[in-house]
């Protein structure tokens, strides 16, 4: 029914004709609109900040959009960008490298962060000071970290090569930032140095929230330290680990600046990750249409990682009897 009819009586007691009230007016009169009105500002902001740029960038991925030729945004070319991407070995190598980098970096940071958190948790004096010191690497901007590690691993004047030469361990410099294995490894080391403390801080928060009763009960039951860790501490920490993993997997692209400074994706694309490739295509080459197509394909990777960690988080919460 499109409209509602209501009977009404006038103040003078005379019978009035039925009044038709629109569905919309009734919606507002009964207060059903309040929640929607309250949500409107945030919807408005989300639309402008997220939805519209997403739609425009999606559209541009079907165009040859070039930043310095704005009119190319209106030239529809169908799936040409995507077809080229699917046939581009450079793109898929960068995609593969990014997946490997994400997997290794996140797991390594998690393991080191967990170890660090367990150690700091055992400290009886000066815990606050150590916690603060532990956060130092997080305070550096990735650009600074990039310069710092570029210098450390420089083949000619770098700290490591100089130390190795002075100690007599080598006579010919190691090309840390060039070698096919060492170059990605140096970036991994820089990234791990910068971000391990994120895991450590989050996991330390989990350890501080860990109730002492189960651990004491385990001790009474004769569990050794490893068994207590494996069956009590670790399951309790799993939600924290997955939350940290999810946050870091979305935040790891911060490493772009670092890679840009250290190797700029080279040499010969040996350290090319999706971020350096997309930035170069979009800004240096100004081919924003193609860069956005790359972005949309790589979003699949982000969604897959996020969904995976979210499911794991839910499973971990169920396991420890947490609220659904």
């Amino acid at each position: 029914m499109a409209e509602t009819i209501e009977d009404g009586i006038s103040l003078e007691g005379r019978i009035s004709y039925p009044v038709r009230e629109s569905r919309l007016r009734r919606f507002f009169r009964l207060g059903h609109a309040a929640p929607y009105i309250l949500v409107l500002p945030s919807l408005f902001i989300v639309t402008f900040v997220v939805a519209i740029p997403l739609v425009i960038s999606l559209w541009s991925s079907f165009t040859p959009y070039n930043l310095v030729r704005p009119w190319t945004l209106y030239h529809y070319i169908g799936f040409r960008n995507y077809l080229r991407l699917f046939n581009s070995s450079d793109f898929w190598w960068a995609f593969g490298r990014t997946v490997v980098f994400l997997t290794v970096a996140l797991n390594l940071e998690m393991l080191l962060g967990l170890g660090l958190a367990l150690l700091v948790n055992k400290i009886t004096a000066g815990k606050r000071a150590v916690r603060t010191i532990m956060m130092f690497p997080m305070m550096f901007s990735p650009i600074l970290v990039g310069f710092q590690f570029k210098y450390i691993f420089n083949d000619n004047v770098g700290l490591i090569n100089n130390a190795l030469t002075s100690l007599g361990f080598m006579h010919y410099p190691i090309a840390w930032l060039v070698n096919a294995i060492l170059a990605p490894l140096t970036i991994l080391i820089a990234e791990t140095w910068m971000s391990t403390s994120v895991f450590a801080i989050l996991l330390l928060a989990g350890l501080l929230a860990l109730p002492s009763e189960p651990l004491e009960a385990a001790k009474v039951d004769g569990c050794n330290a490893w068994q207590a860790f494996r069956h009590i501490t670790l399951p309790f920490l799993m939600p924290f680990i997955y939350i940290a993993m999810t946050i870091r997997s979305l935040d790891v692209a911060r490493a772009y600046d670092m890679v840009k400074i250290m190797t700029d994706g080279g040499p010969a694309q040996r350290t090319e990750l999706l971020w350096t490739l997309i930035a170069r295509t979009g800004y240096e080459d100004a081919r924003m249409g193609m860069a956005n197509a790359m972005g949309y394909v790589s979003i699949l990777l982000s969604i897959a990682v996020t969904v995976y960690f979210y499911r794991k988080l839910m499973a971990a919460r169920s396991y420890m009897g947490g609220a659904e």
Binding site: N154, D155, N156, V157, P173, I174, A175, W176, L177, V178, T263, D264, G266, P267, A268
Partner: peptide, 16 residues
Amino acid sequence: VPAGTINYTWDDIGQS
């Protein structure tokens, strides 16, 4: 040439 030259920019060469 230094092995790292493949990553060098003008400043690196100038400094060397």
